[in-house]
Structure formats: structure tokens, C-alpha cells
Amino acid sequence: MKTEKLSQMATAEEVIEAVAEFSREAHSFYTDLVPKVTKDIRYLVEDLARAELAHVRMLSDLMKSPDMRDHLKDAIRRPEADRRFSDAVQAPELGDKPDDQQVLQYALAREQVALEEFSELAANTPPGLLHEVFSFLANEETRQKADLEALYYEIVHSGGV
């Protein structure tokens, strides 16, 4: 029982590293996808790759910040959403020629997973720096998801509606 409880815990460093890995995988996935999609929708994949890279950089800066360094070893309860989060690190196959709607649906699903992960992490940490960091990251994901939803509506729900 005690072991099980311990396995539910992780350090802040581990959690943030997992998050960074999630974004690194996504960046790599989108970068690989760029030449596979037709030029008319390439902007979409390039935008997504850029957003993930920005995410990686932001997390890297966060780990290096002096304030954060003191909290890297703090124990945090692993979120329930962690399994879905870990699964999503493995990018799925979108086929040889995915269209804009498939790319967007995939990106939206990833944003949802990340949003749930950060929201739970924020809820699991007491008020303080870590709580603020995860709340900030959750808000970032919410904003990015909103941007993607707006883009989805613009692209898919347009033309003759």
C-alpha cells in the first residue's frame, strides 16, 4: 500500500521533464509531417510545430530559473490524467496524406490531454510557486486550445454554410 502511494508521487522535475518530452515529441511529429502534407495546408502543420517548439523552450527556461531550481525536487502527486498523457506522447499515424481536418482534430486532442494534465497538477499542488507554474501552463493550454478551435471553425465550418 505504501509502495503504491509512493509510485503515485513524482518530483516536480520529473513532471516538467515529462511535459517537455510531450512537447518535444509533438514538435518532432509535426516537423516530420510538414513534407507529407500538401502545400496548401502546410502552414497549419508549421504553425503547430512552432507552437510546440515555443512550449519546449518555455519549459526549458522554467527549469533553469533560480526560483524554480529550489522546487525541482518537491514531491507532487501524479495526476489521474497521467496515463492518457503518457499515451499521447506516442504520436499516432495520421496516414500518408492527412488533410487539414485530420491534423486539426489530432492537435485538438493533444491540447485537451495537456490541458487536463496541467489542470490536475495545479489542483494537486498547494499554493506557491509550483501551483502558479502549473496554473499558468494550464491557462496556456486553454488559450492554445481556444485558438485551435477557432481555427477549426474557420476552416471546417466555412464555405457555403
Partner: peptide, 27 residues
């Protein structure tokens, strides 16, 4: 389903699609 429509740009072929400039999904 009547949620939206798209242009069939596949008629352009790969080479021309690649050669053309695009603006967020539209020619």
C-alpha cells in the same frame, strides 16, 4: 452533413500545388 465546403484543389496536381503560393489554405 451540411457544415462546410472545400475546394477540390487536387486538380492542380502535386507540382503546381507546390509551385503556387498559398494563403492559409486558399490560393
Amino acid at each position: 452533413e451540411a457544415i462546410g465546403q472545400a475546394a477540390d484543389v487536387s486538380i492542380l496536381g502535386e507540382d503546381l500545388t507546390e509551385a503556387l503560393d498559398w494563403n492559409r489554405g486558399r490560393l
